[in-house]
Write a protein that binds this DNA or RNA. Sequence first.
DNA 1: GGAACTCGCCAC
DNA 2: AAACGTGGCGAGTTCC
Length: 481
Amino acid sequence: MKLHPDTNDAYRLLHQGTLALARTEQQGFRVDLEYTTNKISQLEKRIVRLEAKFKETDFYKHWVHSVGEKHPNIYSNAQLARYLYKVKKLEQTTNTDSEKQGSTDEETLLQFGIPELTDLLKIRKLKKIKDTYLSAFVREQVNGYIHTSYNLNLVISYRGSSSSPNLQNIPKRDKETMRIVRKALYPRLGHQLLAMDFKALEVRIATAYHKDPMMMKYNKDPTTDMHGDMAKQIFLIDNFNENIPEHKVLRNATKNGFVFPQFYGDYFVNCAKNLACGWSDLSSTGMWSEGDGISLPEGTLGKHLLSKKIFIKNSSGVKINTTIKNLKVFTEHIKQIESHFWGNRFKVYAHWKETHWSKYQRTGYIDLLTGFRCSGVMSKNACINYPVQGSAFHVLLKALILMDEIIIKEKLKTKIIGQIHDEVIFDVYPPELDYIVDTYRNIACVQVPKLWRWINVPLIVESDYCQVDEPWSELKSYKFS
DNA sequence: GGAACTCGCCAC
DNA sequence: AAACGTGGCGAGTTCC
């Protein structure tokens, strides 16, 4: 058997993928119309109430009066920016991407500590739930089922996308928002929802490209813990233990604030700032603004870090011993960790990034391990990220195709009803639950790596499911008997 | 009155 | 030397 798929294989993957995703679209995701329409009118009333209250405030009256808007609109970021930065002359620390106005996003507004802005953010959030999600469900549903389009022809990196409605961005992290939106989505009567996703798929697929021995070890040896190791290093923890709640929080912050951003191509200044925001209440204290002599917040972690000493180079390049007393020192600390991360820990990975980039610069294209080719103008980060994102998604697509074939061949009553980059969503006929979980796990972790020998580390899938007739808000992790 | 752009925010 | 990847979508705004 050949080691690498070619263009024909790539074509076949998209062809079969299109057919399997067409069936997914046709099956549809059941929506509880009664709940959804009730919730919409409930939210509408609440929004009207909050809007009225907001318009009573001196803050709003001053805003409208001073800017002299013909059509005052509390949802207009342009109007808000004019008021905050031109009239009230608040310090404009960040601009929008196009540099046309000062930022009016959540992080920026919270840092001003103005109660009316906090209220405005709340109204914005409720309106987003109502208009972007719930209303879209009602608009798009046909006889109580949403038939989302899954596209294979739109994303530059060869990932898939979803639209009308987009089911790949349903709220998850904010628990309140998650519950309101996901309560609208149900399995068929007497069925239950099951979501199976790959664990750290992109990290594992990247390993097939760079073949870094340290990353191979992290991916192969379940007793190792990359995020834990990095948390230890960043927060100077002597006896790291994932079961200690505080350590767990720090491990999570490390994963989302350092490790993943580094893989995407971010650098130490942003990482340090984001990690700092994670534990201090930036909005009310402003303690982490740039500059000298600014202290750490009073929290436990602040005290913990203050008790630690690190070596950094001062402005004249001389090594000095200091405590992590402010953002400047912390940034220097993260800079050293970044340099160790790519210079020692993942040296081979770093080397691949350079050779891969220079090969693109010579040839004008990059090839994916799944038989696809990306060409055209690419930034360095894009050049490094596309092959990983694309072929990671192809692993999911391949597994989905094989699973779909089995469901058809064996006339199973369970249906595939969705796909989110590295996850398949099933509408399960309860007697088939264990069989579906075992079968998909076998396809994803055994069959796909057997077909694609270039996969050089184990693949792992995790399962979440709801009880019979429960909505998508009730997902719990699957327990094995 | 609609097309195109901008901004913000949700997901992986 | 420079500095976070991929999308969809709603609402506001600007332009023609």
